[in-house]
Design a binder for these strands. Structure first.
Lengths: 126, 126
DNA sequence: CCCAGTGTTCGATGGCCATCGTACAGTGCT
DNA sequence: AGCACTGTACGATGGCCATCGAACACTGGG
């Protein structure tokens, strides 16, 4: 299960409609291949929760990584997106120099029913 | 929100200046007072997941701490139960030298709908 | 009263992880 | 070409946390 249909390789050339990328494509993990512990660990971080929530508040592919307003530097932010990809929470697509993001709502919810909704709608009163 | 109703009764000793128990009662946190991040962090640990699952497989108050078969020493186990208490996942009650446990299913589920069920029934394929 | 069983606390340790700064690599624009 | 922008890779660092061993505290029973 969980077929990665992404296969993009550093093909030397050929003009493509939109795909000619000499840049390593982001590695994705399908939610079906994600252990529960990985999913929980991914969401057990304040910055990543904020990223997910922010992402949920915008249309798919609307936000590039730099558009997220989190109190960490670029390096850490990049790391967090990597974690979110590995947890099957985020899908990324390159467009120009930017890396657009999409929350994998349905796929993730199919694997971990309710977890994403919980993360999005729980009001953190403390 | 979250009233702790602690009226443990059965101690015979009439003379109670303040609980004849000479042992510090376990400190509990009601799920309503638990931030999402705390709940997720509590469950983002393999040993604690195992504890919760094991607990769910037995009737309330059926298991004392030593009855759980996890690959850690007593000290670490005690620490894990402390974390679970702070996350509103476990309630403990002293009986003799033992400390009996109960999974706070309904209260926790009311605060984080689906999270506990998810933890209990997700099959970890890897 | 001692003892065995149970659980907590303490200090120490090792490892993992979030973060930073910097350097580097692609991309598009002028 | 050069440049600004975007994101990643790398090494280092600091902190948090899971774990252990040992010491301690409480309980009930012989």
């Amino acid at each position: 299960m969980a077929i990665e249909h992404w296969a993009e390789e550093d093909t030397e050339m050929a003009d493509r409609t939109e795909g000619t990328s000499h840049r390593p494509a982001p590695v994705h993990t399908h939610p079906d291949d994600v252990p529960l512990l990985t999913a929980l660990s991914a969401l057990a971080d304040p910055v990543r929760i904020q990223l997910v929530r922010d992402l949920a508040g915008h249309p798919d592919w609307a936000l590039s990584c730099s558009n997220f307003d989190v109190p960490v530097g670029r390096a850490a932010k990049s790391h967090h997106f990597s974690v979110l990809r590995d947890a099957g929470l985020v899908e990324q697509r390159d467009q120009g120099p930017k890396r657009l993001n999409r929350l994998r709502r349905e796929e993730f919810d199919a694997r971990f029913p309710g977890l994403l909704d919980l993360t999005l709608r729980t009001d953190d009163t403390e």
